[in-house]
Design a binder for these strands. Sequence first.
DNA 1: AGTTGGATGGTCT
DNA 2: GACCATCCAACTG
Length: 197
Amino acid sequence: MEVEAYAGPDDAASHARSGPTARNGAMFGPPGHAYVYRVYGMHLCLNVVAAPAGTAAAVLIRAVRPLDGLAAMREARLAAAPPRVVTDPARRADEAERLARVPDARLAAGPALVCAAFGIGLAADGLDLLDRVGRVRLDLPAHPVAAGAIVAGPRIGVAYAGEPAVSRAWRLGIAGDPSLSRAFPPAEPARSARLPR
DNA sequence: AGTTGGATGGTCT
DNA sequence: GACCATCCAACTG
């Protein structure tokens, strides 16, 4: 599991930085609802709105460790491939073969892969994730994650936002999780450890 | 192990 | 018209 926090107008890396628009509207809606957006013209990302309606904050779901429904996830990944791949039988077969080699733990190891593996589309934008009978929903974990098992680091892909947004350690993950989108940078070494001998 | 470039199109300046 | 909260294959070393 891996997430990133995005705030409101005071966070230059946040989609909410310039106020509400057609795209980010859900971010200004009620908490616990989904904010789904398209990036790079082809991928989708899922957020959980995390601030009262009228204000903006959200948590980007960057990676998930698959526990069940692995076959359904592989099917959803294939269905989420670009149209020309899904349509063309040869390319589709190639993609299915490639997906068969993807380890279970890597099926949702990235923000766009989360949407692909769970079959989440733009239709999910604004949905109430706390609705117990919703098609996409959040549940409480079977075992809570110990605070000591959580690692933090800078957010990915927000260099354009400049400081202080770039350096905020608002990317959180479970240490040692095989499903992280990528490794966390090593913790800053203690000052004494960097002194010359 | 790390870097580079292509795919691809909505969104905002 | 430039810019992306990305992913993957193809390179370099």
